[in-house]
Amino acid sequence: MIEVVHPGWLSIVVDGGRHGYGDIGVPPSSALDDFAYNALNVLVGNEMGLPALEVIGSDFSLKIDVDVTCVITGAKVTAFIDNMPVKPWTSFRVHKGSTIKVKEILEGLRYYVGFSGAMGLERTIDSFSTNLECRFGGYDGRPLMKGDMIGFKEFKVVEERLIPEEHIPPMNPPHVLRVIEGAEIDYFTTESSEIFFGKGEKVWYTVSTRFNRTGIRLEGEPIEFKQDVDTSIISEGILPGTVQIPGNGLPIIMLYERTIGGYARCASVAKIDHYRLAHLKPKDKVMFEKIGIEEAEHLWMGKRAGMNFLLKQV
């Protein structure tokens, strides 16, 4: 059993996402940092796709009543097993009756906690991920609360593995996000889009404190629409990382909770930088830098190959 002693600020169950139901409006609700999530399952010797906990906030602790291997990936944290420090991105053994505690977050925002074996959870619409807004999937469709118990379907102790420090992706602000032009880029004045795409003088946006898993709202220089265009579009399918510009001109980066959007799309965050979206905190500085689709694809494929190679090595 895993007993939630402190749930942090928000802890939910996630996996690689709920795919194949975009036609009925079901969003992926995936783990936001895909590399951290995939690395987690590798580090504890699990098959891919098993559930993990995605946590925001310090003061998170779990009491474990079995012998099992555990790992924390994603944000760099200071963590302890009972009173012994453990390193993030390095699996460690938990002895029956121990408590895992996260005290402080040093870099990034979301971290992932997982175990060797499988937590006793069921898939809802093919996925373990929590759809928080509609309250289904994960643990009863809700964030974990103090006193919640999660059983194990299977648990085991495996040898310790780690991702070397130099391969842990940077998560600290300022965040320079590479982006590809969006479908409605022509809706905006040339001057505005040049500012947005980081040409000439650098313009930084700030992550708003209106904060949720659906989208990241930014504050700063509003993007101006051309005079003769509508500020909304006929609602259309969107993919994660789409940057929408509502009437007020302030960008919203859509995450994994919407299949359709009705605002003009000025850009898409390149996949190579998607993991960073998991780590944008209120007040962080963000800048966009335009790249071409071929370059984005090249970077992403290169990173995928590197990640797959690395994960085979550990």
């Binding site: 795919h19 975009g22 036609d23 006929i234 609602s235 399918g237 969107i238």
Partner: peptide
């Protein structure tokens, strides 16, 4: 992986 049909397009 996914198909999102809407008013004007299939994504």
């Amino acid at each position: 992986v996914d198909i999102i049909p809407s008013f004007r397009s299939c994504l």
